[in-house]
Structures are given as C-alpha cells and as structure tokens.
C-alpha cells in the first residue's frame, strides 16, 4: 500500500494528462483544468506550507538548544512579522505588509544578489586563466562579450559588437541548443520512467 498506491496514482495521472493533450473534448478539458488549475496549485501551496512548518520546527529546536539563538529568533521574528502585518493591515499596496516588502525584504534581497558582482571580480582575478586552449577560448569569448556589449565598443570598432553577436547567435547558440536537446530528451525519458514507476526517487527510494 505505501508504495503501490502512489505508483498507481502517478501512473493514472501521468497517462491521463498525457492523453488529454491529444483531445479537445470538453471532458478532457475539464479534467485538465481541474488537475492543473485547482488541484496542482493547492497541493503545491501545501508543499510550501510544509516547508515553512519544517523551518519553524528546526528553528525552534535551535533556540531550545541555544545554538545560534539570536539569529534563529530574528529569523522567526521575520517569519511571524509578515503574517501579523498582513492580518493587521491587509495586503493591499499601501499596507504595512507591502511596506515591509518594499523597505525590508526587497532591498536586502537585491543587495545579497549584488554581492555576486564582487565575488565575480575576485574570482576573475584569481581563477580565470588561459591555462589551455579551451580555457583560452573561454577567456577570449568572455573578454569579447565584456567589451562588445559596452556602448563604447562600436566607437572603437564596428566589428567588435558584430563579432560578439555572431558568436552568441551561432557557435554559442549551437552548443546551448545541444545542451537543450539533451535536457529535452533526458526530461522525456525521466517523465516516462516516472509514469511507468521505474523512477521512484520521489518515494524516498522505495
């Protein structure tokens, strides 16, 4: 039961959703709408709630063990703050909830992301070496793109941006396309294996 039932549900839902692609019948549309629009979205939201519940559980454990207590309390405070603000003032655009999003969350997120600019600079200095022919190609292309996408590039030489776009649109695109086709074929195979119950990692290895 713990293994067979999920496998059966996976098989049925997979086959039904695959077959509905080939049908325009109202019943097929209804099934498709119900599963994708109603069920899928709700279950997905629950998975997120479970994630949050798990985070709370771990954080509370940390607090009781006095491990990173202050930081855990701050994280928990932030987690509680948002729903409390939403309860007090709603979530409309002028609410305290949105204020917290725009003045606390958004600036911090953008700043954390911008730290990468510094790490990229440091890594480029330390590790970006023309050690071999492939590494030299990588380095040369990166330098070309860095120059070629600058507004001053075309004033130095018109062929710099042209060459940049040529590399991007043809050889680079061809390699990316190969990766994409590989991912496409791999995803299809995995999807088939999942539906047929051969791939069971989502059942925690059972």
């Amino acid at each position: 039961m713990p293994t067979r039932l999920p496998l059966l549900i996976c098989l049925v839902s997979g086959v039904v959703m695959f077959l509905q692609y080939f049908s325009r019948h109202p019943v097929a549309k209804l099934i498709y709408q119900t599963v994708t629009n109603d069920w899928w979205q709700v279950i997905f939201a629950f998975t997120l709630i479970v994630g949050v519940a798990s985070f709370i559980k771990i954080t509370l454990r940390k607090i009781s063990q006095k491990k990173d207590k202050t930081y855990s309390l701050i994280a928990l405070g932030g987690l509680i703050l948002m729903p409390v603000l939403a309860l007090i003032g709603g979530t409309n655009i002028e609410s305290p909830f949105q204020w917290a999003f725009e003045n606390l969350l958004a600036p911090m997120q953008a700043t954390v992301f911008s730290l990468l600019a510094f790490f990229v600079a440091s890594a480029s200095f330390r590790g970006f070496r023309a050690r071999s022919i492939p590494a030299a190609i990588l380095l040369g292309t990166a330098l070309l793109v860095l120059i070629g996408r600058l507004p001053i590039a075309e004033h130095i030489s018109e062929s710099i941006p042209d060459l940049t776009f040529w590399i991007k649109n043809y050889p680079s695109m061809a390699a990316r396309r190969a990766i994409l086709i590989g991912i496409g074929l791999g995803s299809m195979t995995t999807a088939l294996r999942v539906i047929l119950g051969i791939e069971r990692t989502y059942l925690s290895g059972k």
Partner: peptide
C-alpha cells in the same frame, strides 16, 4: 507514506504534461 499520494499525483501529472512539451518545444 501518505504524503506520497499528493506528491505522486503532482509528479505524475507534471510528467504527463511535460512529455509533449519537451518532445515538441524543446
């Protein structure tokens, strides 16, 4: 093990929808 039921439904439906999209578009 009961949590596997919704996961199986989501993964199965996702796989079913993904096959034509992956085959054609990708």
């Amino acid at each position: 093990w009961l949590s596997r039921i919704p996961i199986a439904l989501m993964i199965g439906a996702g796989a079913g929808v993904a096959i034509p999209a992956m085959l054609y578009a990708r």
